[in-house]
Amino acid sequence: MSDATVNNLQPKASEVAPALKVRSYWQTVGYRLRYDYMTLFFGFVVILIILSAIFAPLLAPMDPYQSSMLNRLKPIGYKDFILGTDELGRDILSRILYGGRISLTMGILPVFIATVIGGLLGIIAGFVGGRTNMTIMRIMDVFYAFPSILLAVAISGALGGGIFNGMMSLTLVFIPPLCRVAETATSQVRNLDFVEAARATGASTFSIIRVHILGNVLGPILIYSSSLVSVSILIASGLSFLGLGVTPPEPDWGLMLNTLRQAIYIQPVICALPGVAILVTSICFNLVSDGLRSAMDVRM
């Protein structure tokens, strides 16, 4: 072929296209979130709740463990007790602030650990496929035989009470569903040609997972695990409510609800207060998760 022909065939580097501002996937998600005022508001509340738990020692007006036989079950606004006192005369507001530390930790930490473990197992199962997939997923299926609360109760019951065992059982409860979500997402991505193309360049399995799989499955996994936080908070306080999680005299929302239950005929409003804390936190996490889901639902 002559030089002239080659030059004719040389395409001109000028496909018509205006210079666009290029946004990555996560930038797009951030951009969409910035205009979702509902989600921003509830996200703000979530941060407020977390901060008030972290700075409980600075915010709490009283010592949450200080009991007093004289001031038992006083109503809202009694003396300095802004939200009244519990059955041992302890300040409810202080206990709710401190209780957030344990309740939130028990809500968030198990989901986080389960996301890492379950996500990893799911990605491995989905990417490797074959026998590995079978083994991992069949083990996970065993846990699917139980509704989540029953499973948490059963594991905690077997391990015994306490914060650590409670978190352990919650983690075990959340690993299977997260593993399944990760597995589904991964096996979908795995069959796309760009993974095949990456293999054709001679890339190692590890490199392909890190560079090509992770970025494409992280979204669905995070959406799912964010929706689990509120479930986890509910089950965690449920466990404490049954006496399987936090043990007295630690302040915890579920446990407070349990001990105050005896007093519904004396101070009905006070008895419902710790539940309000659980409810507000759970609703906020749920709505933030919903907002995240719709922001991440970008077809790219």
Partner: peptide, 23 residues
Amino acid sequence: DSYSSLNPRMPVEDSIAYGQIVH
């Protein structure tokens, strides 16, 4: 399939460069 053979979460120049980085 020109669509599914490119990683949707990666700028295309990175997709091209990936092969050399692997090696």
